[in-house]
Every structure is written in structure tokens, then in C-alpha cells.
Nucleic acid binder design. Sequence first.
DNA 1: TGGACGTTTCGGCCGGCGCCGAAACGCCGG
DNA 2: CCGGCGTTTCGGCGCCGGCCGAAACGTCCA
Lengths: 236, 236
Amino acid sequence: MATKDSRAAGLAALASLVADETRAACLLALLDGRAWTAGELARHAGVAPSTLSEHLGRLVAGGLLAQERQGRHRYVRLADTRTAQLVEDLAAQVTPAGTARPRTLRESSAGSAMARGRTCYDHLAGRLGIAITDAFTERGLLRQDTGFALTDAGLRWYGAAGIPLDRSARRPLARACLDWTERRPHLAGAAGAALCRHALDAGWCVRIGSERAVRVTAPGERALHELLGIGREALC
Amino acid sequence: MATKDSRAAGLAALASLVADETRAACLLALLDGRAWTAGELARHAGVAPSTLSEHLGRLVAGGLLAQERQGRHRYVRLADTRTAQLVEDLAAQVTPAGTARPRTLRESSAGSAMARGRTCYDHLAGRLGIAITDAFTERGLLRQDTGFALTDAGLRWYGAAGIPLDRSARRPLARACLDWTERRPHLAGAAGAALCRHALDAGWCVRIGSERAVRVTAPGERALHELLGIGREALC
DNA sequence: TGGACGTTTCGGCCGGCGCCGAAACGCCGG
DNA sequence: CCGGCGTTTCGGCGCCGGCCGAAACGTCCA
């Protein structure tokens, strides 16, 4: 019983960190994979800087966030891919129920940009992520019928495209991540992250403003068409 | 911002359900995949029945538990595999940090039985689950190097062993579940559940007492050796 | 039909914690 | 070296929510 209590206490403590709306908003914001300052997060969440400072202290102490101090700024980001995956999973469990609808025009256009394409911590999501995942599957690079794994052809594709894959890491190569706009799984894991990094480095897509949304560039459209047969109609 | 707020509020609300030690203990107990009565859970968690009744109300209202009333009993179980997976993931995130150690002899022996073999909602875990997963991988039935998926040989193995696989469901056939005693992934998903069900139905293993722990029977040892080449030494 | 028992509802208590504003602390730039 | 600014600490406020016991409700059994 004592072991059970210890497990339950740890589980409750972990959940407590997420169980506050302000902290939850921070975690969701940090899902863009970048580092935010304390002040940015305070404005984003709509609370006093002093309040947010305490929240950050808890999240860092709980191991959910990593911090880096530069001068008078405090930068925080999600601690690791494991944490990001956890937040994604929790968020995915929520959205199917609460059909959230944008209310203002600004939110609406921002929302449609997010639905078109965005980063999901370190990989691509939205219709862009789905289009890539579908193309991978159709071309036999990704197998979804018996689980979620790259095929040998998929490994070769990465090599041919010149996208480096870190296969030594303990991180799984391919993993399914549930998309909260499309409600379908898309490619995550080391392979998804490598593809996203390459897409941003090679200029296939660029970030829109300071948000998670991304836009596919003209060279990006050509590359996606040549390498994966993705047509323009799948991206809008 | 309103959409973000809505997502954050939902996320916080979901986490709030888990963020209480008593409710967390219930969720962990229900990971055995069976239905418990309110009284059993109250004794298990060490709180008054009235207290636990309110907790169950919240968990059911929040969609984490499904309930079934029979006479003067209220049976509750985890709502679905999705919920079970979420609790598993959260629990797995916790245990690596808090190296829980059993304190009494009784806990210790119960703990070692759990470490030897147990159910993890609807599939097998512990050293038994790891042994099966390893055997699957070595025999080319399961592929872990590029993700986590059954191979064609794996599909044929299920057919040859006479274990029915539901491939029509939206549930993924193979999924990795992190083992909290072995700290390695083991086979979950529809394939893991089918194997566990068959193992219990065919008498390959039996539950010990009313807990999650299972014991491999003599016919079970023979079957595991013949079908998967698992030796007795891997099971103790 | 009456008593036992599992469950639920209702007050009441109390601790935890999220919030703010004021003030202090550091770092930076002029 | 001084003023601005991002951040942190601290005190105080108020509310949410978990806990219990008492009592009510409903079911099962003798």
C-alpha cells in the first residue's frame, strides 16, 4: 500500500502542475518548441509577472520546464520531448470534447493558419503534417496498418533526400501524434523532427509571426511535390 | 486568445481530475482493467465512503470512468483504452524520478509478483510482458527499430496461433507502453490486448488474488516455449 | 416486513493555493 | 553612476475543494 501511495502521490503531484489554467496556458504556448521569457508568458496568460514567476518556479522544480537565464531575462522551454509528448497527449484528450470555436476575426484567421500548418513541438502538424503523413503512407515509406513505423523504403527516402536521421538515440524513430485540428495521427518522433528541422532549414516553410503556424514557400511546394508527390491542393 | 484559453481551461480541468492523491490512487488501481465497487476503492484509498463517492462522481462526469450500477453496488472502470493509455503515460512519467521502494515484507513479495508479471489495463507487463515483446522482436514478428509495428510475419503468427485480431477497429494494432518496473517498452494496443485475453482464456496465466499480478501456469510455460521460444529462465 | 449494508447527500471545517500590489533585486544602457 | 526594466520576494486576501460524520436512500436477504 505504501508503494501505491507513493505512486499515487507522484501522479497527483505531476497532474497538479498541469491542473492550473495559467500553467496549462504556458505549457500549450511552449508547445511551439521555442524558449519564451517570463514576461512574454505573463502577457500571454494575462496575469501579473509576479504570479507567473511563481508558476515558472513550480514547473521548473517539477521537471516540466528547463530554464536558462540570460542577463535580466529568464528563458523557459519544455524540458524534453518526453514532456512535450505528454502535454500533446493530454491536450489531444481534451479537444475532441470541447469543440472550441474562434470568436473574433483575428482569432479565426490565426486559427485557419494554424489549421493549415504548424509545428507541434518539433514536428509538423495541421493539414501540412497530415498531407506528409498520408504521402509517406501511400508511397510505402510509412506503415500504419500494423502499428506506426517507417519501412525500409522510408529509411532509404531519408537518405536519398539528404535528411540526416539520428538512429542511435533512445527516442523512437517514428511515433504517432494525434492532430487536434485534423483529429488524425501524424508523423512524430525522431523522423518527424528531422523532417521538420530540414523543412525549416531548407526554406520549405517559414514561421508566421511569432506563433506556431508555418507557411509553405514556393520552393517548399516544389520540393514536396517532387519528393512526395504532394499537390498544392493538399496544402490549402 | 479565447481559443487558447478554452484549450488551457480544458487541459487544466482534465489534469485537475488526476491532481488529487485519492483519485490518482483510484485510477492506478483501475489500471488492472477490471471494475471495482465504490466501497472497494474507498478501502483501497483509505478514505470514507462518502468522500470516495464524490470523487467517483467527478471522475465519471469528467469522462475518465464509466460506471455501471448493479443493485446497491456501483461498479466503475476506466472509460476506454484511450483513458487507460493516458494514465499509463502519466504514471510512467512519474516513476523514473521517484524510485519507490517497498517497505514491508508483504509489499515486497507483492511487488516482486507484480514485477514478474501483471496486467497493464488490457495487456501483459512486467518481466512477462518484456519477455514476450523481446521474443516477438527476435523472431521478426515485431519491429522496433523504425517505430513500433507488427510485421507481416507477426500477423501470420497470430493467425497460426489461433488468436483473433480485430483489425477493423480504429485502435492501433501495436503500440509501445513503457513498463514502470522494467523501464522498457512492451507490446500494447489491439495485438497486446488480444494476446493477454487469449493467455487468460487459455489458462496460460492466472491472476493472483484480486490484484493485477499474474502467474504463468505450467501449460502456459509450454505454450510460450513452443510458440515463441521463451525459456523458463526469462519468466522468473 | 424489518434489519443489514452499500451508497449518496449535506453541513461544516480547514488547509492549500492562485491572485495581486508593493517593494526589492539585478542587469543593462545612457 | 544613475534610471529603466525584467524579474523575484513577500504579505495578505479570498476561494476552491478535500475531508469527515450524520442522516437519508435504496437494495438485498432472512
